[in-house]
């Protein structure tokens, strides 16, 4: 079974014929070639596949592509400006050691963005809570949390 869906992806209007059993992760990664969204477990446990759907951070491995119809979707590929300037969160992860092997990074950044878009002044504990579903094996989370804290200052200071 196939279905035609339309959605807004990183600001672009997309129309796509999908198979009904595809996950959003499959659509993005395997069909559209957006490799920034990672599969770490395929089971909604690690957060590496986090994207933002209608302002909410979701595990795209558990989200059916058909449900994306009519939605506004943001992936890691949509964060940097067209001139190459990184989003303040991306830059902060770079500057503060929030990235080692990098496999969890897109998901971490997307979860952080969903939080800060909703609440630019989120507390340290709120950041910890928002990232609880994103596993990182390299950093011990210390520099990831520092990265989000640092970006918070920049975002509330009039960034994107």
């Amino acid at each position: 079974m196939t279905t035609n869906i339309s959605f807004l992806l990183n600001g672009d209007k997309i129309s796509y014929e999908i198979k009904d059993h595809w996950t959003l992760l499959h659509l993005l990664r395997e069909e559209m070639g957006l490799i920034g969204t990672k599969e770490g477990c395929g089971n909604g446990e690690c957060g590496a596949c986090t994207v933002i759907v209608d302002k909410l951070a979701v595990n795209s491995c558990l989200y059916l592509a058909v449900d994306a119809d009519g939605k506004v979707i943001e992936t890691i590929e949509g964060l940097a400006s067209i001139d190459g300037t990184l989003h303040p969160l991306q830059q902060s992860f770079v500057d503060n050691g929030g990235i080692q092997c990098g496999f969890c990074s897109p998901g971490m950044i997307m979860s952080s963005k969903a939080l800060l878009d909703e609440k630019p002044t989120a507390s340290y504990d709120e950041i910890k809570h928002a990232l609880a579903g994103n596993i990182c094996r390299c950093t011990g989370y210390v520099q990831i949390l520092e990265s989000v804290e640092a970006a918070k200052g920049q975002l509330s200071g009039g960034g994107q």
Partner: peptide, 19 residues
């Protein structure tokens, strides 16, 4: 000095075996 490949990874452009 930040990791040299960090920006590439932050943008989701780094290619792993998965990719």
């Amino acid at each position: 000095i930040p990791k040299l490949d960090a920006a590439q990874k932050a943008m989701g452009r780094a290619e792993y075996i998965q990719d």
